[in-house]
Every structure is written in structure tokens, then in C-alpha cells.
């Protein structure tokens, strides 16, 4: 079992099968979990996260005692998320974690976004779904590299799956990496993937009360996108109320309205991405300049 993804039998697409497990786990396993015997493989295109918990047998003491643990239950996930975030910072990558109910339009949004950005900015996509590679296929049809992660029974992506997917996909330096999470407004809220922002997508056919019904997700998101605004005339969706609800759970949330079908509102969305990317690349430039200065200084003092 990997980190907290034990509910799953998740697979990362495109993984070449090998039994000595020299594959897409570039991290050292110093956190003491074992990928060896628990790994199963369905076919040679997937990493399959093993199930089951290896029993640990330690000769015990006979008297009962209290041991302080003080550990975050999500600690393992957060360790991986921290590593993903450090990777993104080092490579100037803006990573966005797209979360929503099933069918709000995440993949449609990503296809159109990829089309709009691809001439100017390197883009890569990690697609999370329980089953099928349909969504990754849709992205690849736009000419953008995409990798499908199937979570099996798992209801969310976790940071370890994303780490493996990043190793496999190898997004370009200074790129925008979109991670489409499993359609689910509950569980992905708890799992940091190492993204710069969670982007919550809510379509206007879902009702404006979603931010109050699923507050954790809207509290965790930096941006809320109201999608399918081309359908507003056919619904009783109250945009102002929806934004008010979202601000109740997250006073700082940014809100954009758009249609992934018609492209209305896309300029602001693309501007938001571009600004995020500018900051990610600027940070990398600062870090590189510091390195360069240190290298020059070391020559100067030699």
C-alpha cells in the first residue's frame, strides 16, 4: 500500500512493467513502506498500487504503556505533496489541481485551454479517473502530453500518485501542469497534491448552493470557476448568491465565469493562468540568479 492511497488499486498509465521495481518511484523509500510483494500488475501499461498492509511483528513488552505519537494522519501524503511542490518550484512549473463534481466540464475546459495556450506555453495534463483513459485521450487529441491515472476504487488522487505521474510525464521546465482530479467534491479537498492552487469548477446546472453543501472544497480552493454560463438563460442559477456563498466559506476566493463550450470568459481565465505562470517562472529565475551569483562569487574570491 502506498501512502494514504490504500483504498485504491491505482494505476499510472504507460508504465513499463518490471518486477524489480526500478520504475517510476524516483524517491527513496526511507519512509519505510514496501512496494515489493504487494505490487500487482494488470498489464504492462500501468503501475498498480498494491493492496494490503504488511504485518509488523515486534516482540512485545508485557506491561501496557502510553506512547506519544503526535503525527498527522495525512503526514505521508503531505510529505509527497511537499516534494511535488519543491519539484514545481525548481522547474518553474505552475501546477493546478482541478476539482469538481463529475461532469462539471473539467476536461472540456482543459481541451480548450490547452488549445489556447499551446502555441505560447508548454502545457501538460495529468488526468485522474477511477476507470478508463477517455479523458487523457481527449487531451492528447489536442496535441498536449497527457497521462491517465486510474484510481480504481479510490475517490481522489493523492500526492504519491501525482509524484509517479510527474516522473512518467516529465513536464517541460516553465510549463503549466494541469491535474484533473477525480470528479468528487468531497475527498480531494483533504489531499494536497503539491499544487499551487486548487481550482474548483462548478457548472451552473448544479445549483448555486454547492459552496455551502461542500464547504471544505471551496475553502481549499484559490479559484472558483463558474462553468457553462452559456446555459444560464435555461436555468434559475443565481450567480450573485453563489459567489456570496463561496465567499462565506472562503473570503479570499477568486471567481471567474466562463463557458468551456463557447469560450466566453476565457480571456480572464487565460490571464489568471498566465499571471500564475509568470510568478512561478519569476521565482525560478530568482533562484537561478542566486545560484549564478554564488558561482560567480566563488570564482571572484578564488
Amino acid at each position: 500500500m502506498c501512502t494514504v492511497c490504500g483504498c485504491g488499486d491505482a494505476k499510472v498509465e504507460g508504465h513499463a512493467h518490471s518486477h524489480d521495481h526500478d520504475h517510476a518511484h524516483p524517491h527513496d523509500h526511507d519512509h519505510g513502506h514496501d512496494h515489493g510483494p504487494d505490487h500487482h500488475h494488470d498489464d504492462d501499461r500501468h503501475i498498480h498500487y498494491g493492496r494490503g498492509i504488511a504485518g509488523v511483528h515486534v516482540p512485545g513488552l508485557s506491561q501496557s504503556r502510553i506512547v506519544q505519537i503526535e503525527r498527522d494522519i495525512l503526514g505521508h501524503n503531505n510529505d509527497f505533496a511537499g516534494r511535488n511542490r519543491a519539484w514545481a518550484a525548481e522547474h518553474g512549473v505552475l501546477a493546478l489541481n482541478l476539482v469538481s463534481s463529475p461532469g462539471s466540464g473539467k476536461t472540456t475546459l482543459l481541451c480548450r485551454t490547452a488549445e489556447a495556450l499551446k502555441a505560447k506555453v508548454p502545457v501538460a495534463v495529468i488526468e485522474g479517473d477511477q476507470q478508463t483513459s477517455f479523458d487523457a485521450d481527449r487531451i492528447r487529441a489536442t496535441g498536449i502530453p497527457a497521462l491517465q491515472v486510474n484510481t480504481g476504487k479510490g475517490c481522489h488522487l493523492d500526492a504519491h500518485m501525482v509524484e509517479s505521474a510527474i516522473a512518467r510525464l516529465a513536464p517541460a521546465d516553465d510549463s503549466v501542469l494541469f491535474i484533473e482530479n477525480v470528479g468528487n467534491l468531497v475527498c480531494p479537498a483533504a489531499f494536497d497534491l503539491g499544487e499551487a492552487y486548487k481550482v474548483a469548477i462548478l457548472s451552473v446546472t448544479e445549483g448555486e448552493d454547492k459552496p455551502l453543501k461542500y464547504p471544505d472544497m471551496f475553502a481549499a480552493a484559490g479559484l472558483m470557476i463558474l462553468n457553462k454560463i452559456d446555459l444560464l438563460p435555461h436555468t434559475d442559477f443565481d450567480v450573485a448568491r453563489c459567489i456570496d456563498f463561496a465567499r462565506r466559506v472562503n473570503p479570499d476566493i477568486v471567481v471567474l465565469q466562463l463557458s468551456a463550450r463557447t469560450g466566453e470568459g476565457f480571456d480572464q481565465w487565460l490571464a489568471w493562468i498566465t499571471e500564475g505562470r509568470r510568478r512561478a517562472v519569476a521565482e525560478r529565475i530568482t533562484a537561478l540568479e542566486a545560484k549564478l551569483a554564488a558561482a560567480k562569487a566563488s570564482l571572484g574570491t578564488a
Binding site: T3, V4, G6, C7, I53, G55, L74, G75, H76, G154
Partner: peptide
């Protein structure tokens, strides 16, 4: 999955 995470930390 959280519970499985708990058991793993306990191990």
C-alpha cells in the same frame, strides 16, 4: 484510506 494511513503510521 485515512484509516489505512493511521494503521501504517502505527506500524
Amino acid at each position: 484510506s485515512l484509516t489505512e494511513g493511521v494503521v501504517r503510521i502505527l506500524e
